[in-house]
């Protein structure tokens, strides 16, 4: 039992990060058909917001010097602001462009963010000790689990519940779900498009901030490329969950985390380096099996 608990927690905490990322991407895709490749760079930007801009190896804390609760609030705020700014400056001007153009624009924005970080912090990874006491293990049904993993799972659950409450119980949430389902129709019924899109960007950016906090306390380093791998998996999760389906994105995020940990555990040692190849084979199989995603009922092709 204790032997299985550790991988179970690994799977859930990895899945939590993927789920939060996928949710951030799905929210924006739902309201404006944009696959936001800059999302990973939002994560990196939030991490670096903790540090004072400097190209030296060791640098002081900027936001990281605040008390803990203020760190959390300010990092989430930085993510939200960055994300909203990118909507106002870039994506708003591309409202009628096709998805491919939007995607390339987000990719170009990602390059800009990454290189702003590069210019102000240099490309060398930096060590950040944020809440080192979190890596202490806690006893949990006989297994010792790092406190951080427990916290990651808890934070994700709280965020997800909060989001569910927001989406199901508030007026904005209702409007956002309507917009994700059928944007044109929602506008006709009086949903204010720009406000909803801004809100979606804000939440998505705050989710990126949450991932940044989890990542930086897990790894203890800040690297300008650190958001990218998560973004890619989250992007895949969004698609196999069903584009625009929020619960699908969350489910697929956890699913990918679980598959990844299971493969790590079960594959023989000499083919373990090829784990990601198997993971992506599973993704292809899943897409072939349900091209419209796990959570999209009905065929995606147009009826004639």
């Amino acid at each position: 039992m204790a032997g299985l608990l550790q991988p179970l927690f690994d799977a859930i905490s990895l899945g939590s990060i993927y789920a939060l990322g996928a949710l951030g991407i799905a929210l924006i895709f739902g309201v404006m058909r944009l696959i936001n490749f800059a999302h990973g760079h939002y994560i990196a930007f939030c991490v670096f917001a903790l540090l004072i801009p400097s190209t030296e190896v060791v640098t002081g804390m900027l936001l990281g010097a605040l008390p803990s609760w203020l760190i959390v609030l300010s990092v989430l705020g930085v993510g939200a602001l960055l994300s909203i700014a990118s909507e106002v400056v870039v994506f708003r001007r591309l409202r009628n462009a096709n998805p491919a153009v939007l995607m390339i624009a987000s990719f170009a924005l990602g390059i800009v963010i990454q290189n702003v970080l590069l210019v102000s912090y240099s490309s060398r990874p930096k060590s950040v000790s944020l809440w080192p006491e979190l890596s202490l293990p806690v006893e949990f049904f006989g297994a010792s689990i790092p406190l951080l993993q427990v916290l990651t799972v808890l934070v994700t659950v709280v965020l997800l519940l909060g989001l569910v409450f927001f989406l199901k119980r508030t007026r904005f949430g209702l409007e956002m779900r309507a917009a994700a389902e059928n944007f044109t129709m929602a506008r006709m019924l009086g949903v204010r498009a720009n406000r909803i899109i801004l809100l979606a960007f804000g939440i998505s950016g705050a989710l990126a901030g949450a991932i940044a906090l989890v990542l930086v306390s897990q790894t203890g380093t800040a690297d300008i490329r650190m958001g990218l791998p998560i973004m890619l998996i989250a992007f895949v999760a969004t698609v196999i969950g069903g584009m625009g389906s929020l619960q699908g994105a969350v489910f697929a995020g956890f699913l990918l985390g679980a598959i990844s940990v299971t493969l790590q555990l079960l594959l023989p040692l000499d083919i373990r380096p090829f784990r990601d190849a198997f993971l992506y084979l599973a993704v292809i199989a899943c897409l072939i099996w349900r091209p419209e995603g796990l959570f999209r009922a009905g065929p995606s092709s147009e009826r004639v």
Binding site: I35, F235, V239, Y280, L281, V283, I284, L287, I288
Partner: peptide, 26 residues
């Protein structure tokens, strides 16, 4: 295999192919 898919699902499947090639060759 992949060409049975359309739209965004096809794009993701091609990305998965790229990731597999990169993983195998690495």
């Amino acid at each position: 295999v992949l060409m049975r898919l359309s739209g965004i699902a096809a794009s993701i499947a091609t990305f998965a192919f790229l990731a597999i090639v990169n993983n195998v060759y690495s």
